[in-house]
Amino acid sequence: MKRLARVAELPEFKEYREKEPQAAWEHMKNDGLNNGREIFQNTRLRLFESQGSLCAYCEISVDVMNDPRGARVEHFHPKSDDAGVNWNLVWDNLMGACSGNTVTDLEEPAYRAPPKKHLSCDAHKDHLIQTGKLDEACEGRVLNPYDLPAFSKLFTVKQSSGELAPDVEACEATPKFCESQAGTNVELVENTINVLNLNCGRLCDARKTVVRQLNRQLQTEREAGKSKNQAQRLLSDRHLSKRWPQFFSTYRVILGNGFEEALQDVEYDG
């Protein structure tokens, strides 16, 4: 999971909320009278554009323009909560997410059978809520990508398995998140991985492929006479020419200081 930068609210979204303050999300999506369908499409495009076309949780690439079935809008705070705030239409509550293994004819890493085993992201979170294993309002149990620091890597990747894990040193050096229900940042990162099922086999195998590719590229550059840092930086510049590479956090771990230097140069903020 990487930091998300907050993006300015679409004017038409704000106008719709002011006109229909109690509207449910599904109502807006299907509201042809007040341009709700178009506003939904523009909202989804705006979110994914700001995220570099990556899922806010697992970081797989989402082709929202050519195959929008794999792209949806996630409400971090449950939109079903009607205790005084209509969370359906709170702009800062929205982020772009993948389909979480619910669209069966997408290619890997977006889908793998059996479906329930490989549910991830908001789809897995919703599954836990529906089965009574997770409270509906789960802030503090799951990290909000908007709240992540830009240059503190709370997640690391196990190269042998492709599994995400807490970066213990970074977690301990980062102030505790104010809404955290976990005892430590390490526990909060572990909870986030589990709730979103970010270590399902589908995602771990895809990360392992990225790890192997990057290590081969690093080896090639080292054999050509470049130092470790030169090789890391060259590859970082190459891969950051696209905003952002799929499995961004895996690139960050494998390319190390070179990647951090490149992020500093582009004034990375999510």
Rank of each mutant, 00 (worst) to 15 (best):
C121F: 13
P145G: 03
N35E: 10
L10I: 11
K116Q: 12
L263N: 05
I129V: 10
E223Q: 13
T104V: 10
L240C: 04
W25N: 00
G201C: 04
G225W: 09
L119Q: 08
R17V: 14
V103P: 00
D237S: 05
L255D: 04
E187R: 05
L240T: 03
N197G: 01
K133Y: 07
L198T: 04
Q181T: 11
C171K: 03
E261K: 08
L255I: 14
Y251M: 05
N194T: 13
C204N: 06
N215C: 14
S236F: 14
E12G: 00
E172Y: 10
D269Y: 13
V168R: 06
K226C: 03
L33D: 06
R207D: 02
E74M: 07
H118T: 01
L154R: 00
H124F: 13
S227Q: 04
R17P: 04
V211N: 03
A113S: 11
V73R: 02
A8T: 09
S61F: 15
Y111C: 01
C200Y: 03
K133T: 02
T209Q: 14
D135C: 05
F76Y: 13
N93A: 04
N34Y: 11
L154W: 12
M95E: 09
N257Y: 13
H75Q: 06
L10Y: 10
L33N: 05
A56V: 05
K14G: 07
R17I: 06
E261W: 10
S249Q: 11
Q232D: 01
D167P: 02
R207W: 15
D81V: 09
I39M: 13
Q51K: 01
H118C: 01
T184W: 07
G96N: 03
N197S: 10
L255Q: 08
C204W: 12
A113L: 06
S50T: 09
A170I: 06
E136C: 08
I129M: 02
R17L: 11
S241E: 11
S120D: 04
E223K: 14
I129H: 02
R6Q: 08
R46N: 08
Q51I: 07
R112K: 15
K176E: 09
K116A: 11
D81K: 02
K117F: 15
L154T: 06
E172M: 15
R37Q: 06
K19T: 11
G183V: 03
E139V: 12
V189E: 01
E38P: 08
S161T: 13
Q230W: 07
E59M: 13
Q246T: 12
F248S: 00
S50H: 07
Q217E: 14
D81I: 15
E223G: 01
D63W: 06
H27P: 00
D135M: 09
P78L: 02
F40A: 03
A83F: 11
D205K: 15
R252M: 05
G70I: 00
E187A: 14
N191T: 09
A97D: 12
D205L: 07
H27K: 10
D237W: 11
Q130P: 05
T250F: 13
